[in-house]
Design a binder for these strands. Sequence first.
DNA 1: TCCCAGGTGTTAC
DNA 2: GTAACACATGGG
Length: 282
Amino acid sequence: MEKIVFREEFFNIKDTLCCGQVFRFKPYKKGYLIFSREKCAYAYNENGYGIVECENNDKNYFYNYFDLDRDYKQIYNSALNSDFEIIKTSARLGKGIRILNQDLTETTFSFIISQNNNIPKIKSTIEKLCCNLGGQKTITFENEVITYFAFPSVKKIAKTDIETLRTFSLGYRAEYIKKLAENILNGYSLEKLKELSTKELTSELLSLYGIGMKVANCVTLFGFHRQDSFPVDTWIEKVYKENFNGKLTNRNQITEYFLSLFGENAGYFQQYLFYFKRSLEK
DNA sequence: TCCCAGGTGTTAC
DNA sequence: GTAACACATGGG
């Protein structure tokens, strides 16, 4: 086992996982188990540090996964310099949030599933997908053997019939993920889209069946780490109306409004706001 | 029971 | 171009 140890001021495991950007994790002992691709890590905060335990070969993967090379102090400070009190407030609450570098394929499928769905159910649906179509894996932390399932291969999803997919509670989204899987199996490359500008990337993603503006923005932000993205969902729309006194009703226009307001750190501010608003409702 | 959830596709104008 | 509606499913 390897351990990544990183000062916790800008690395809070709970906030990073629970802020809505990722769905494959669960509470475990001092922190959480995190699943990505076929890998698993155990992460927790302790004595002023964020600690990530994983297999030796996965250390670089999870170091990058948690975006540990980026300077979050600069992002946080720019939030504190905002003219909007709610940006400061939500940034303080979400100070330890980092935007993950998740697997691109997994992120795209996950956010297609996320549409018109709530987070607990998104998590359970993705888990069913993994349990039924992903390979079984084991890993040992502190002498305890953990059994889990990898995210399924695109091929496996593509070859699974629609009726079976529907038994994973995908609802009408089953066709979307089936079609995307077939598409990728036939040679469509999400990786190649990395060359595109955020604008080009967004319009390319919009051409995929089942991906609209909201999901496209989530994929650019959480899959491609494009921080000039600003997904607008029901929660962000509430923030817009209640905290920014916004009059726009078109979500695309709300995205444009926030992008021009927040500039290059818009994506991070979006996460601060989303986490803040959802925390209030509980 | 009803409303809502990290919305999108289709149809009608 | 956009407004209205259908769409699956389960949490609260």
